[in-house]
Design a protein around this nucleic acid. Sequence first.
DNA 1: TGCTTAGTGGAAACCGGTGTCATAAACAAG
DNA 2: CTTGTTTATGACACCGGTTTCCACTAAGCA
Lengths: 354, 354
Amino acid sequence: MAQPPIRAMHASMKKTSQPTINDVAHVSGVSKKTVSRVINNSPLLNDDTRQRVLGVIKDLGFVPNPQARALALRRNFLIGLVHDNPNAQMVLNVQQGILEAIRDTEFELVVRPVNRGAPSMLEDVRHFLERQRLFGVVLLPPVSENDSLAQLCDEIGCRYVRMGSAKLDDDEHMVASNDREAVREATQYLIDEGHKRIAWISGPHGFRSARERRLGFEDALGAAKIPLHRSMVADGNYTFDTGVLAAERLLDLSPRPTAIFAANDEMATGVLYAARQRGLDVPRDLSILGFDDTPTAGHIWPPLTTVRWPIVSMARAAAMKLLAGVGDGGEAVTEPSMFLSTLIRRASVARPMD
Amino acid sequence: MAQPPIRAMHASMKKTSQPTINDVAHVSGVSKKTVSRVINNSPLLNDDTRQRVLGVIKDLGFVPNPQARALALRRNFLIGLVHDNPNAQMVLNVQQGILEAIRDTEFELVVRPVNRGAPSMLEDVRHFLERQRLFGVVLLPPVSENDSLAQLCDEIGCRYVRMGSAKLDDDEHMVASNDREAVREATQYLIDEGHKRIAWISGPHGFRSARERRLGFEDALGAAKIPLHRSMVADGNYTFDTGVLAAERLLDLSPRPTAIFAANDEMATGVLYAARQRGLDVPRDLSILGFDDTPTAGHIWPPLTTVRWPIVSMARAAAMKLLAGVGDGGEAVTEPSMFLSTLIRRASVARPMD
DNA sequence: TGCTTAGTGGAAACCGGTGTCATAAACAAG
DNA sequence: CTTGTTTATGACACCGGTTTCCACTAAGCA
C-alpha cells in the first residue's frame, strides 16, 4: 500500500506563529492522534509512519505546547523550589543541582522564597502549589524541617522531597547529609591537634541541622572524656552578627577557649572578625572551625577550615527523586538519599600554644 | 426580577479535585462566560451577579487553572531570569527583586542559568523561550550585554528587559546603574585621601561593566592630572583567584601602589588575601576598594570600602517594566530606568603613609 | 407606538494537546 | 472460507479556560 503523500503546507497554517500538532498532522497526512503518539514514543506505531512524522516535525520546527500538554495531562512541568535560606550560595547551588537533574527534560524550575516567620507562610505555599499545580517541590532547610509543610504537600497531592541534615523516617521524601557524624569527625580533629578548651556556637533553636551538629560536637567531646561546660556554648542563629556577638562573649572567658567551632561558616566568619578586632592572631591564638564551605570561607584570611557538604549533588538527587518514574528513559538511576560531608582542612586551625 | 437561585452542588463536581469554572457557573446559576467575566474584572456586568459569583468562588475555593488560561490566552504567566553570573548573592538579589515585583500577581519566576562560553548558548535560550512561550525575560549581566540575545527575543516576540551598567540606546528594554560615575566618585575619594599611586584591577574584556568602571577610574585620574601608568593596571576577570594574581603582580611593583581599586568585590577580597599573605597591614600599608558590596565585603577584616548598587530595586524595576500595562491595576508606576550607586566607606581605606 | 441602543448573558467554537473507543487490515487458527 | 486476534490508525470527546456571535431585555427617542 502506498504511503499517503506528504502534503504541501496546510491552508490554516500561519507562518507567523508556531506550528501546532494539527499542522504536523496535515502536512504528514496522518491524524493528530498519530502525531501525538510519535511525540510520546508510543510503541504501537508503524516505524515508517514514525520516521515520516518525525521528519515533518523537524522540518516545521514543531515544539509541543507545554501549556496544552499540561492541561490535557492535568499536571504541568514545573518543579518548585521552596526555600527560606539566607545563604545565597547555598540556594544557588541547590538551583544548580536541580537544573542539572532536569536538563534535557521538559521541566522548568520555578523559585519561591518564603518567609518562615510569617504566619501566612503555610497559606502562601498552599496557594503557590494549588494555583500552579506544580509537578513537585524541593524543600530546602530550614523550611524543609517544617512537618506541616510536608503534610500540606501530601494533602494537596503534590510530590515533594525534603533536603535535610539527618535521615527522617520517610526515606521516600528525604535527601539528607550526615551533619552529626561530620561534626564529630571535625571536632575529633581539633582534639587530636591538642585542643581541650573548645567552644561551640550553636545554630538557631528548632533547626534540625543545628541540633544534629551540636550532637556531633557532644559526641566527640564525650568520647574524649572532655567535659562540656555550659559557658563554652554560645547561642547563634547562623548569621554573621550573632557569630561576632557569640565570639565576643567566648573570648572574654578566662581561660579563653583555644578553639571555637561555629555551626556554620557565616558565624565562623564572624568569629574571625571578632578575633581580629581584638588583635588575636588566628590560628596562633585561636583556632576556628566552620561548617558549609561557602566560597567566602576560602577567601578570607586565614582561609577557614570547615566542613563541606555536597549540596549540589544532594539537590540533583532530590530533583531526580521527584522525577523518578516519569522520564522517557525509565532507567531510574536510584540516587542515594544519604550524602557524606567531608572536612576541608585549611589554615584556621593549629595546635594550641598551651 | 428574582435572581436565579444558588443551586446545590453540581452532580459532576468531584470533591477530590479542584473546582473548575463550570462548577462555579453551575452553583451560582450563571454561564461559564459570566464567571469568566468576573474573574477578569469585566466592567459590563451586573454588580449583584458579580457579588454572587464572587461569593461562590470563595465558598468553593475556586482558583482558575493557569494552564488553561495560558492556553486560551496564548501566553503564559512565567517570567524568565536568564543569567550567567558567578556572583550568587547578586543573582539571588535579582531573584528577590523580581519576586517582589510579581508578588500578588499570577506570574511566577523561572530561572535559567546559561553558559555564556558555550557555542550553543543562543540556541539553548531560543529553545527555552519558544518551548515555554515565556511572557518575558529579565537578562542579567554579563549575558545581558549580548546584543544577539536581545535580537533573538525581538525575533521570537518575547518581551525582555536588560539589566546593565550603563544606558543603552533603547531605554525601552534597559535598566541600568551608573557604574562609571560611581567609580569616578570612589576614585576621587581615594585621591582626596592623598593617594597618588592608585592601581586598577579590571574586569574581563568585553564586559560593559568592566569598561564603564575602568572609564570612571580614568575620569577621576584625568581630572586630578594623575598619569595612569600601564603597569598600574592589571587584568582580572571578576574572580577571587584573578584578584589574588593581579594583586601579587601589583604588590611587586616598586614603588608599590598605596591603593588598589578592584573592579568588583570578589577580586578586592583577593587583593586583601594577597596582602595578608605577604604580611601587609590593610589599610596602613595598602588601601583597597571594591565594587558591588557583597555580604562578604562587610564580613572580612578589615571590612571593605566598596560601591553598592541597588540591585534589588533594579531587578524590581526590570520586572515591573516587563509587566507594564498588564496588571489589573493599570496605574503603571513608572520606575526609573537609571539607578545610582553609592560609596560605602568602611575600614579598608586610609591615608597613605608617604 | 415603533425603532434604535446599551446592557446582559448563553451557546458554541476554539486554544493545542491527550484519552477512549471503534475500525480496517493483516495474520493465525479451526 | 470463516472466525478470532493482533496491529496500526482515526474519529471524537475532553482538559478548563477565553472569545465570538447572537438573542433577549429594558431604556431612550421620535
